[in-house]
């Protein structure tokens, strides 16, 4: 990948004022962490590799970041999908964001959102669910409901309710999350038992048909809860049942929130 070109582009965007902020990645003690570049001469700190999993689109909900629009983001294809989906959900205007597009060992240059959408559909139209995640979903589906309940019981028991999963997700942009509403209180606040079950299930469900499977939530979870199993299951169902392809069409209606007369109702008596 042409890192030098990426740095050069980032510097140019800042130098000529096309971007007020470049968000990318830098290296710190052997790990890749988000970088916030405001001056052209800092652009050389930018790096990119496969370990840069954080979905930088999540930063676009922060008011202090939005103040610096247009913002340029280093974005792999999944992150580009997040941006397209944010636009489809009216969270972004087309000119709020520029994309420093990276993917498959290639640097694609600086793209507008519309250009990123075209690139996605031309080059990255078939981003598949991680094979390991799919295999694990299938393994769980072979289990009895009791075994699955036990599996999730153990997983959710780890949850401390730090909400790192929510924070890391660009699609979790609600100003007040359902889990923080207490009149009425739908989800128990205790970081245990039924509260943890309800939180993790509802978090996943609120992303049904919206998750683009970037993996940022699972990577963010300090406790190692396999959140992508839930997300990928719903992504698969949304795809199989409703042909959902979130993040490929900035004009698309939300999957849950629209309907089709011919939707499956074999399960309804």
């Amino acid at each position: 990948m042409d890192l030098a070109k990426l740095r050069q582009d980032a510097a140019a965007l800042l130098a000529d004022g096309r971007a007020g902020l470049v968000i990318g990645f830098r290296e710190r003690a052997g790990a890749c962490v988000p970088a916030f570049v405001t001056d052209a001469d800092q652009a050389d700190a930018l790096v990119y590799d496969d370990t840069c999993i954080a979905n930088l689109a999540a930063y676009l909900r922060k008011p202090e970041i939005r103040q610096r629009r247009p913002v340029a983001l280093v974005a792999r294809p999944h992150v580009m999908r997040s941006l397209i989906l944010l636009k489809a959900e009216h969270q972004l205007q087309g000119d709020d964001v520029l994309v420093l597009a990276v993917g498959d060992d290639t640097y694609h240059g600086v793209l507008t959102l519309a250009e990123a959408e075209r690139l996605l559909n031309e080059t990255y139209a078939d981003l598949a669910t991680d094979a390991q995640v799919l295999a694990e979903i299938e393994r769980l589906e072979q289990m009895s409901p009791e075994e699955r309940a036990r599996f999730w019981s153990e997983q959710f028991a780890k949850c401390t309710r730090c909400y790192a999963c929510r924070a890391a997700c660009p699609m979790c942009y609600c100003e007040r999350c359902i889990v923080e509403k207490n009149v009425p209180q739908w989800i128990s606040t205790a970081a245990a038992g039924h509260g943890n079950y309800a939180w993790n299930v509802i978090r996943a469900f609120h992303l049904a048909g919206r998750c683009i499977e970037c993996g940022a939530c699972e990577a963010a979870c300090p406790q190692g809860i396999p959140l992508m199993l839930l997300n990928a299951l719903l992504a698969r169902e949304a795809r199989d049942q409703f042909d959902a392809r979130p993040g490929y069409d900035a004009e698309a209606e939300p999957v849950v929130g629209s309907w089709n007369k011919d939707d499956d109702e074999g399960f309804i008596r």
């Binding site: 599996f151 469900f205 199993l229 719903l234 169902e237 089709n260 499956d264 399960f267």
Partner: peptide, 27 residues
């Protein structure tokens, strides 16, 4: 119609997290 779509997904999530499909009915 909106509800039907929601249930189509939610019932899968329920089953997957250990609530037997035999306990969720739609009509």
């Amino acid at each position: 119609y909106h509800a039907r779509r929601r249930w189509g997904l939610f019932r899968r999530l329920m089953e997957f997290t250990g609530i037997d499909a035999k306990r969720l009915f739609f009509s």
